[in-house]
Amino acid sequence: METTKNYFLMDTSVMLGRSLRHVFRSLDTIITVTIMPIAMMLLFVYVFGGAIQTGTPKYVNYLLPGILLIAVANSIGYVSYRLFTDVQRGIFERFNSMPIARSAALWGHVLTALVSNAISLTVIVLIAVIMGFRSPAGVLSWLAVAGILAMFTLALTWIAAIAGLSAKSVDGASVIAYPIHFLPLISSAFVPTKSMPAGVRAFAENQPVTSFVEAIRALLSGQPVGNTIWIALAWSLGIMLVAYVLAMNVYKKRKA
């Protein structure tokens, strides 16, 4: 046990290097993950935006947090897919018969999701700036936004890991992304929840994505964040913990 533990960081960094190469050598995945949300942003700002009343002067300012979360939700299908192919091709079997830290292979994929999302989210923010997005937020607020997005990514990635490890087919592996795509749509990401019928509104206001949207929006617009940031953190920690335990369980069971 000792020897493998000491090498955990080293092994994880080898795994991270490996799966980053995968991402950069199949740039289409980054492009899809980045372009889809940008297309949505263009559509909402220039097509629907005029008809949406948000109470903010620029709709793109209102919209950006939701678009960033959608981009993350988009990307997790690929995490499932990459994990699934590793299982399918016997690569995990090879790793598991070697004296390396057990969870390093999984962490490599999870950290890769963080890095590739950081890239695509930066691109999306830059496009938003070109479209007129402005923010009074200082460095600290931006760091907080980055932190919230990272937590959101981690939580979703571990859910994706469960799907990738337990799926029986490629389609099964990536199907996890669909319900998660919908969550940002039924939140305050695109329109204020006030306009929704009571039942939907209750759901929208209490589902996890809304707390992320609100926290990021408050940080970017220089408003007081209040509780939202803590609610968002609690959600992400809770989801991450449960999903991590489940994913590790599935991972270990694969060998039994």
Binding site: G90, R94, P99
Partner: peptide, 16 residues
């Protein structure tokens, strides 16, 4: 694990 190595039934190389 420290004293073995396994070549599984299906080729397990990273194709990328």
């Amino acid at each position: 694990r420290q004293s073995i190595s396994l070549t599984g039934q299906f080729v397990a190389v990273d194709e990328i």
